[in-house]
């Protein structure tokens, strides 16, 4: 690039009218040593910008350090998830065990369904009849007992009636 062009670009630069590409052209131009005397200081400025861009974080362990500081958050997250899952699992286990024990106790108290069934319908009928007879006998006894109570009622009614006629 000739010095005329550079001069024009520089003027644009000082007036903040250069694009990023044009600024890069200026940096490229001033990077090499053959800079006219009048631009020595300007060249130093562009070099200064370039050299500053090379400055880096001089710490090899930096990334490692950052990642190490990031880990606890993720670890905590998984740990929390694991902890919560375990809590739920423990609750479910307690419930299941309790249910199992209660079921066992209940089964022990109440005998399971009657196992005997009759294959022969006639025999079954006889058995049913027997059972019904037993109930009806029970009813009969209850009835005769109830009749006794009835006697009291009748007597009470009798007394009431007599009281009424007297009055």
């Amino acid at each position: 690039m000739d010095s005329k062009n550079i001069e024009a670009l520089l003027n644009k630069y000082w007036n903040c009218e250069t694009t990023l590409e044009e600024e890069q052209q200026l940096r490229d131009f001033f990077r090499n040593g053959n800079v006219p005397e009048q631009w020595k200081e300007t060249a130093a400025m562009f070099r200064y910008f370039e050299e500053n861009k090379k400055k880096s974080l001089n710490d090899v362990a930096f990334d490692h350090h950052i990642v190490a500081r990031m880990q606890p958050a993720t670890k905590g997250k998984t740990a929390r998830l694991f902890y919560n899952t375990m809590r739920i699992a423990a609750g479910v286990t307690v419930l299941l065990t309790a249910t199992w024990f209660i079921r066992r106790e209940v089964r022990k108290d109440i005998p399971q369904e009657v196992v005997d069934t009759y294959d022969d319908p006639k025999l079954a009928f006889e058995e049913t009849k027997k059972a019904l007879m037993m109930i009806s006998k029970g009813f009969g006894t209850a009835e005769s007992q109830a009749k006794k109570i009835n006697m009291f009622n009748e007597a009470q009614e009798e007394i009431q009636r007599k009281k009424d006629t007297k009055l």
Binding site: N32, G33, N34, K40, E41, A43, A44, M45, R47, Y48, E51
Partner: peptide, 25 residues
């Protein structure tokens, strides 16, 4: 300081440039 050693520059020149850069800083 800046390390601006370059083949095209004499030691004197590079010292000069370095001083200029420090001034600009």
């Amino acid at each position: 300081g800046y390390d601006i050693r370059q083949e095209s520059l004499s030691p004197h020149e590079s010292t000069e440039i370095q001083e200029s850069m420090n001034r600009i800083g």
